[in-house]
């Protein structure tokens, strides 16, 4: 589904990703862990098409298409969804109009007709319930005055509405209390199917207690240096990253 080969990317002349390889197949959940500054969020941003990042080498293919050639909205249309680490507040745009516009634009991209109001409302209610998002938030401006937990639940709600093939969660767990973490994870788990996949970028192992990964990758200095099973996350939690750095240095020798 997703094939990343030798990806190098920089921002303001500083190279962050230094030859990253990753392959994700339908039905899989991949966790990407790594210390601050290792390039986790850069990877998520490059996949979503943030323009500040310049890709200098390598390729990203999504279902055979060159993802890097596509505009952010086309990527969303193809089925890539980024749950933002810091969801953006947009004063004056109601949450419900925002999601309605997004759903219909994505449907248009996929060659589907607009949803009838009734169908839309049914879908809306169902997905709001999934992440226990109060209906009151629908008429508020996008993310404006939302609590941290509400913002993150709103991300998962949007993901549920847009029904992507690949969900990239960028530190969705940061700043969440246990209840919110449980709700967000429940939402993701409900959306999981054999046809879609998730890339979960996180700093902490605790999220992976709820969203169980098939693979755990360690990202260090812009490259994936180690891949393991969910047990690797526990090991990282316990021992930190230094032992991997040591391991790598020994390999070099």
């Amino acid at each position: 589904m997703l094939k990343i080969k030798g990806l190098k990317a920089e921002i303001e002349g500083k190279e962050i990703l230094k030859g990253l390889n990753l392959e994700v197949n339908p039905g899989e959940v991949h966790a990407i862990m790594g210390p601050n500054g290792s390039g986790k969020s850069t990877l998520a941003s490059v996949l979503a098409g943030r323009e500040e990042y310049e890709v200098t080498a390598g390729s990203v293919h999504f279902e055979g298409k060159d993802l890097l050639e596509l505009a952010p909205e086309e990527r969303a249309g193809e089925g890539v969804f980024l749950a933002f680490q810091y969801p953006v507040e947009i004063p004056g745009v109601s949450n419900i109009n925002f999601i309605k516009t997004a759903v219909n634009e994505v449907r248009e991209y996929r060659g589907l007709p607009n949803l009838e109001t009734k169908e839309f409302m049914t879908l809306l209610k169902e997905k709001q319930q999934l992440v226990e998002l109060s209906g009151k938030l629908a008429n508020r401006s996008v993310n404006e005055g939302f609590s941290g937990g509400e913002k993150k639940r709103n991300e998962i709600f949007q993901m549920a509405m847009l029904d992507p093939k690949l969900g990239v969660l960028d530190e969705t767990d940061s700043g969440l209390d246990i209840d919110a973490l449980r709700i967000v994870s429940h939402g993701v788990n409900e959306l999981k199917s054999k046809d879609n996949a998730f890339v979960v970028v996180t700093h902490y192992q605790r999220l992976l207690d709820y969203i169980v990964p098939d693979y755990v990758h360690v990202l260090l200095d812009g490259k994936i240096v180690k891949t393991g099973s969910k047990e690797l996350a526990l090991e990282l939690e316990e021992k930190g990253y230094d032992w991997i750095i040591k391991e790598l240095e020994e390999e070099k020798l």
Partner: peptide, 19 residues
């Protein structure tokens, strides 16, 4: 805000109109 809207599949021209 513009990127956020586009990342949700909203065309740039529509996103600017929304804003």
């Amino acid at each position: 805000a513009l990127f956020y809207l586009r990342a949700r599949g909203i065309k740039e021209s529509t996103a600017q109109k929304v804003l």
